[in-house]
Design a protein around this nucleic acid. Structure first.
Lengths: 188, 188
DNA sequence: TTCATTTTTTGCCAAATGGCAAATGATTCC
DNA sequence: GGAATCATTTGCCATTTGGCAAAAAATGAA
C-alpha cells in the first residue's frame, strides 16, 4: 500500500483522511505465474497497481501468434481504460508472468472514490495520461530500429525484467523470433 | 470551426455560450507544406486541431535518420501534452506535409478556457486519452507484423493519406526503406 | 539424484530487407 | 517548352531474419 500512496502523491496532494479512504477500498490480489489478471473478450472490472511481480499485455494476431504488447512491472498501473470506461470487451489479455501481488480496486469502489474525493479525478487523469504516453514511447523505438538496437533499448527500459521472464516473451515484444533473439544476445 | 465544435461535442455537452467562448479564443493558422507546427527542443506553446491537411510527428534517431512516428490528419488534435503541461522541451517536430489549416489555441487562452468553462477539463481529458490510445494502437501492429502487412494496415488506418504524401514518409513510419516499400507496393 | 519438461541455443537454408547507385517518372519554375 | 528538382522504381549484392528441427542447457518434480 505504501508504494501506491507514494505513487499517487507524485501527481497531486491528498490529506490523510483521503488516503485512508483509498486504502480502505483497496484489496491485494495474489496471482500465480500464468494466471490472468484480465482477459480479452471480457469487460475490465478492476483497476490494479502492481506491488510485486511482472505482467504482460498480449493478444493473438490473425496468424494465431501470441504477441506481447508490453510489460507492466512493479509500481505501475495495470488498467484497460478503454474497456473499463466504455464497457466494451477488452482486446487483450493481462497475464502474470511471475507470481504477482496486485493492489486492486473494484469498479464500484473506484467510482465511489471518484465521487467522494475532491481532486481524485485530476490525479487519475494525470496518471492515465502518463501511463499512455509511456506506452507510446516504449513502442515507437521498436518500429524504426534494427533488432539488436531494439533489444538494447529493451534492456534500458526494463532492466529488472530481463532475467525474470522467458526469452520468448521478450522476442514477441520486440517483434522477432526467439531464435533470432538468442543469436542477437550471443553477439552482444 | 464547425468541425471542431462537432468534435468536442462527442465528448461532452456544452451550451451555446460556452461554444462561443471557445470559438472566440481560437485562431486559424495556415501552414505551407514543409512548415513546422512545432519543433523539438522548444516548449509547446499551443494546442491545434487540424481543419485541413496532414502533419507528421517526427524525430531524428541516433544515426541521424529522420523517423516519422505518426501522421495527424483532418479532425484530429495536434498537441504535445508532455511538453505543454510540464514546460519541458519537446522531443519531436510536427511538420506540415501538405498545406494545412490548423485551429490553434494559445497557452494562455487554453488555460483561461479550462478555468472558465465548467466541465471543459473533463472533455479535454477524454480527448487526450482517446488520442493517446489511438497512438498506442497505431504503433503496435507495426512491431509484430511483416512489412507487407504493416503497409496494408497503414492503408486501412490512413486511407486518405496514402496518395497525398511522399513515399519516403510512409516508409519511415513503417520502419522500412523507401526501396523496400516500393517493391512491396509492386507486389500488391 | 534422476527423469521429465521447459527453455535456450544452434545449424541449415530460404526469404525478406537494406545499402547503394542508376534509371525513370513527375513536378515546379522560369 | 525546357531545365532543374524531387520522387519513385529498379538492379545488384550483402546482411538480417525466419522457419524448422535437433541438440544442449536449465528447471522442476518425484
Amino acid at each position: 500500500m505504501k508504494e501506491f500512496i507514494e505513487y499517487i502523491l507524485q501527481f497531486g496532494n491528498l490529506n490523510q483522511q483521503q488516503l485512508d479512504l483509498i486504502s480502505k477500498k483497496s484489496a491485494v490480489l495474489e496471482l500465480r505465474k500464468g494466471d490472468f489478471f484480465s482477459e480479452a473478450g471480457k469487460i475490465a472490472q478492476q483497476v490494479g497497481f502492481i506491488l510485486e511481480g511482472i505482467t504482460r499485455v498480449c493478444y493473438f494476431n490473425n496468424k494465431g501468434e501470441e504477441i506481447t504488447k508490453y510489460f507492466i512491472d512493479e509500481s505501475n498501473i495495470v488498467f484497460d481504460i478503454e474497456s473499463f470506461d466504455n464497457k466494451i470487451a477488452s482486446t487483450a489479455y493481462v497475464e502474470a508472468i511471475t507470481d504477482c501481488k496486485i493492489l486492486v480496486f473494484s469498479k464500484n469502489d473506484w467510482q465511489e472514490l471518484l465521487n467522494t474525493i475532491v481532486g481524485w479525478d485530476t490525479i487519475i487523469h494525470k496518471i492515465i495520461s502518463k501511463a499512455l504516453l509511456q506506452k507510446v514511447e516504449r513502442r515507437s523505438p521498436l518500429v524504426s530500429d534494427d533488432a539488436t538496437t531494439r533489444y538494447l533499448k529493451f534492456m534500458e527500459i526494463f532492466p529488472n525484467v530481463i532475467n525474470r521472464i522467458p526469452l520468448s516473451y521478450i522476442a514477441s515484444y520486440l517483434g522477432i523470433t526467439q531464435s533470432s533473439l538468442s543469436r542477437i544476445r550471443k553477439n552482444i
